[in-house]
Structures are given as structure tokens and as C-alpha cells.
């Protein structure tokens, strides 16, 4: 399973980089989304893919019985999903505006400040 996930994550990274290297800014955003998803999947995989119960302590007890999933990795992924969501929402607005202002979505036309 871990091997499969590793291949999947590698594909994600590769696809993300490929999309980011295209000329269209829309594909650039798709690349960025794939990239953040790849990183999240990576954390999910390296934190250990065990079959555990949800890490919630039942009412009235102090410990979880049996193997539980690692809550820290979940918290990290959740946080980075939220951050990625916010940042990408911003990127979409930015690109929408940029396309309106520059009148193109071709990265090669956006060289005015280089």
C-alpha cells in the first residue's frame, strides 16, 4: 500500500510541476493545487498507514483502547488543507484579475516587469 501511495504521490508531484511549466496561468493554478495535494498525501503516507480507530477518547475514559490513528498528522494535514484553500482562493482571484488587466492568460505575455 505504501509503495502504491509513493507512486501516486510521485505522479502528483510530476503532474504538478508539468502543469506549472505550461504557458497558461490557469494551468499554473492547477499545478499549484496538485502540488499542495501531493504534499498533504505525503504527510498522510509517511505518518504511517495503520488501520486505527479515530483518535477520539470516549466519554468517561482517559485512554483510547486499541490502535488509534495518529491525530497529529491529521491535524497537520487539516491545517495545511485550510491554508492551501485560503492561498489558492487568493491565487484564483489574483489570476482572474490579472487576466482581465493583461487581457491574456499566456505567461509569455507577462514579461513587463522582468
Amino acid at each position: 500500500m505504501t509503495t502504491l501511495m509513493a507512486i501516486l504521490i510521485g505522479t502528483f508531484y510530476a503532474a504538478a510541476i508539468y502543469m506549472m511549466l505550461r504557458r497558461s496561468v490557469v494551468k499554473l493554478v492547477i499545478g499549484l493545487i496538485l502540488l499542495s495535494n501531493a504534499a498533504n498525501l505525503l504527510i498522510f503516507t509517511v505518518a504511517g498507514m495503520d488501520r486505527g480507530i479515530p483518535p477520539l477518547i470516549p466519554k468517561g475514559e482517559l485512554l483510547i483502547e486499541g490502535p488509534a490513528a495518529d491525530p497529529l498528522a491529521q491535524a497537520v494535514i487539516l491545517t495545511s488543507i485550510v491554508i492551501g484553500f485560503g492561498v489558492l482562493a487568493f491565487a484564483v482571484v489574483l489570476i482572474h484579475r490579472a487576466c482581465e488587466v493583461v487581457q491574456t492568460d499566456d505567461m509569455n505575455e507577462m514579461k513587463g516587469t522582468d
Binding site: A38, A39, L42, I43, T45, A47, V76, S80
Partner: peptide
């Protein structure tokens, strides 16, 4: 940021 997050993930795994 994505590379940073990847590095954090690998660190946590290690």
C-alpha cells in the same frame, strides 16, 4: 511553501 511542507512531512515521518 509546498517544498517546505514536503520537508516537514518527511521530518515527521522520520
Amino acid at each position: 511553501s509546498a517544498l517546505f511542507l514536503t520537508a516537514i512531512g518527511l521530518t515527521y515521518g522520520l
